[in-house]
């Protein structure tokens, strides 16, 4: 290291700091210790830096700055606290309203009955979801087939259905139990691809928790069909057809 290089390094040297631990600064200081001219230059450079440092350290914060920073922080904390309180209050009110609404809806909505669910599901099966297991216009093979499948086979057809033409049968499921589906034709023109337009479902009465008491059939519109539901002996019957009540009654 020569004198010029040492000056370049020592111009950023501050006595009393960790600067001297910098290996280059330490080497330059060692050189200055042996070089009188460099030593004089260093002394003046240090004095100049000290004078400048003193100027910088005369910068004084304006009166009240500290208090202003602290008071603004306190105000921000209070504001945040208020916002939190308000948010909690709003959230609480919304939760209460939601609970009240939910409770009201629960109270106002009667639970769907087992029978209603059964009726809806069987109507959907009639309209869209079944495949004929056995196609026949004779009733005897139906009973044999249904008995073999452990589906209700000892059903009693109402008088009105005696005149309808049977087309076949299928076995549906309701909560693990077999449901007999007997398909008929009313004699009216059928939509393309359809072979039946009148359906009778039979299930053991024990499989429906709210099976109707024995008596006159109860009529209800479900989807685009009209249905009649009744209990006879230990079976629950569900008859479905497109049309109105008068149409349906002709098959009861």
């Amino acid at each position: 290291m020569n004198r010029d290089e040492a000056k370049e390094i020592l111009q950023r040297y501050r006595p009393g700091t960790t600067d001297a631990t910098d290996p280059l600064v330490a080497e330059a200081l060692a050189l200055a210790a042996q070089d009188a001219e460099l030593s004089r230059w260093l002394a003046e450079a240090i004095a100049r830096q000290e004078a400048l440092r003193a100027k910088f350290r005369q910068i004084a914060p304006p009166a009240g700055l500290k208090e202003q920073i602290i008071s603004e922080h306190a105000a921000a904390v209070r504001m945040k606290s208020r916002r939190h309180s308000l948010a909690f209050a709003v959230a609480g009110v919304l939760l209460l309203l939601a609970c009240a609404g939910l409770f009201g809806w629960w109270q106002a909505t009667p639970p769907a009955s087992d029978l209603a669910i059964y009726r809806g599901r069987m109507v959907r099966a009639a309209l869209t979801g079944y495949a004929m297991d056995l196609t026949t216009n004779s009733e005897a093979p139906l009973r044999t087939y249904l008995a073999q499948r452990q589906a209700p086979a000892d059903y009693v057809l109402p008088a009105g259905l005696q005149h309808a033409t049977v087309t076949g049968c299928a076995v549906e499921k309701w909560q693990g139990a077999n449901v007999t589906l007997i398909c008929f034709r009313t004699g009216k023109p059928l939509p393309a691809g359809e072979s039946s337009d009148l359906w009778l479902f039979v299930v053991d009465r024990s499989k429906l928790k709210d099976a109707p008491a024995p008596g006159a059939p109860a009529l209800a519109n479900v989807n685009r069909l009209i249905t009649a539901t009744w209990t006879d002996s230990n079976k629950v019957y569900l008859l479905c057809v497109a049309g109105d009540a008068a149409t349906l009654r002709t098959y009861l």
Binding site: K7, E8, A45, A47, R48, A51, L52, A54, K55
Partner: peptide, 19 residues
């Protein structure tokens, strides 16, 4: 690296605003 010749005393006469 060769700083201008400005004496420490001259710097002391400056005020902080000038620096």
């Amino acid at each position: 690296f060769e700083l201008p010749s400005i004496s420490p005393a001259a710097i002391s006469r400056l005020d902080t605003a000038q620096v």
